[in-house]
Amino acid sequence: MRLNLFPLLVIAVVLFVVLNLSAGLIWVERRLLALWQDRYGPNRVGPFGLGQILADSIKLFTKEDWIPPFADKPVFILAPAIVVATSLISFAVVPFAPGFVIADLNIGILFLLAMSSLGVYSVVLAGWSSNNKYSLLGGIRAAAQMMSYEVFMGLSLLGSVILAGSFRLTDIVEAQRGLWFVVPQFLGFILFLIAGVAETRRLPFDLAEAESELIAGFHSEYSGMKFGMFFVGEYIGVILVSAAISLLFFGGWLGPVLPPALWFAVKTMFFICLFILLRAALPRPRFDQLMSWGWKVMLPLALVNLLVTGAVVLARR
């Protein structure tokens, strides 16, 4: 049997890129926020302050690894690992360029959704195992939020699936050769973007960790690299959602002149920046507002979008 080394290479490349990118995003986010707030951000360590990434990682790794005596120890340790693991696994189905994919599943989108929704366990377990009322509240909030937004997240991208006629991500990208789905599926894109932000618990939907009311919520009790894992998990999530947006609505690697992988990277990066801009600009809603938005506005809109898309597709057939 001939050993096929290619998937292993792809895995290695993907891991390298994603992990480094997520670490680098700490720096990117701080610099961008500073830019939009008329500051400099970290600019002292190394050229452009890039050394900050290294400094931060050294700091996180060398900090005291403290497990509170009142915490449920195994769960407390497990929780941060889950978020990183599930987010990383999701990248298995992401096609970076034609043929450059770890597993080109025919149910790629479903896998993506399944994996990313597993991430909520991490938050819930972290909140629960910390044995701290603020953490627990954060965990519960995360679970409720995830439940509400997962529903129309799936529905919002079904429009693209209908247009492409496949759950396979490669097929969806290929189907956008003529026209990016963002044009016919603009509502779907907006809905997916909002759901994506909520899914990654990024501002303005970071109610699970809301500093002002829950003093960092589910990760109040975390420190050192365990805290760092939540951080990294969050950034991987951001990359994943950005990648998904560019795949589903902006034609993935498609684009003139430049190599496909670069197009994909540019598009993904754009949405990452958009995530950061959202954080820089928007205030956090109340939790009840978040929930009623999800159920009373987003879900009906997603259903309407699905209905209309379905009707149009049927009518044109």
């Binding site: 830019l35 939009w36 707030q37 008329d38 500051r39 400099y40 801009l277 959202l278 820089a280 600009a281 928007l282």
Partner: peptide, 21 residues
């Protein structure tokens, strides 16, 4: 208003920085 505030913030990309080094 959300979009406008996004735009307002984005415009600061080209504003002068106030930090004193």
């Amino acid at each position: 208003s959300l979009v406008r505030s996004l735009w307002e913030v984005f415009r600061h990309t080209f504003a002068r920085r106030v930090t004193v080094q």
